[in-house]
Design a protein around this nucleic acid. Sequence first.
DNA 1: TTGTGTATGTTACATTGTAACGATAAACAA
DNA 2: TTGTTTATCGTTACAATGTAACATACACAA
Lengths: 158, 158
Amino acid sequence: MDPVGFETHDHAHCMASALAKAEEECAEKGLQLTPVRRRVLEILLEQHRALGAYDVLEHLRAEKLGSQPPVAYRALDFLVSHGFAHRIERLNAFIACSHPGERHAPCFLICRECSAVVEAPGRQAAQALREAAAQLGFGVERVAIEAEGLCPACGPAA
Amino acid sequence: MDPVGFETHDHAHCMASALAKAEEECAEKGLQLTPVRRRVLEILLEQHRALGAYDVLEHLRAEKLGSQPPVAYRALDFLVSHGFAHRIERLNAFIACSHPGERHAPCFLICRECSAVVEAPGRQAAQALREAAAQLGFGVERVAIEAEGLCPACGPAA
DNA sequence: TTGTGTATGTTACATTGTAACGATAAACAA
DNA sequence: TTGTTTATCGTTACAATGTAACATACACAA
């Protein structure tokens, strides 16, 4: 799994590929990637950072695709519940998934300086969490693993 | 470390002991456990569950200890920043720390049925997170590890 | 056609969180 | 004592985030 780190990357390509992946998966599973849902995913991919629901809504308004909060929340819920986007609890914000299609336990690194958010491989952390929970008889269904700190560009090295 | 699981326990004792611990630590470190801060900690301990800031505020209002949101948020911020309480991002809520004084990476199990929240040992999950972050050159300062699922009482066994 | 289900549109409101500014109180030096 | 500093507290006013409820539109099957 490519960690999609803090380095620069071919953004146009990553967008197009994520969008194609989403379309493919929706076709497969009979999910409806409606214009609003598709556009919200595009917005998240374009921005390539965590956006609040109201940030997304502003874009939708500007494009006459919807003007009220529920429109944005519904589209975001759809994207999140099918794994095309993730919710960052810490920020009350949403971000496009970096690895659509792959089963993965998301795990986010949030830079407190530049607000960059990166999705890191979280398999091991999630597994450790499941084990700790199992010890207490707790059955984990969903996890939210988030770290706040300094990204390479903002860190002590910089 | 006693996991303080989902079992029943001597609540009066756990409250008194946590409060004593907080007083001791504040005395040591020169922190001021003022009446409002102390009372908010007591409220969290009494309830023994995650409370929203406005829930706490209601108690404060009833007791004439403060009536406006900032009063509750300040006290909660104090408690959180000194490790006497934790914020549950997922719930926008706060809970008294189950292990005051001990250095620990908090990790929370949230039951989606009964809303119980339990603090589980999260050392390993936090460590895994730190390692994954280090791979990307990210320096972790704070972590939020939260799991949603079913507690033993609400689970398939029940 | 008539239902049925899904998605959308909209209103109105609930909940959560903060900036800003002044008042108060304790600690301490001049 | 007086002035100064610092932390805490009180309050207003508002910003930001999220949802319940109900109406509408459209596709597709019975």
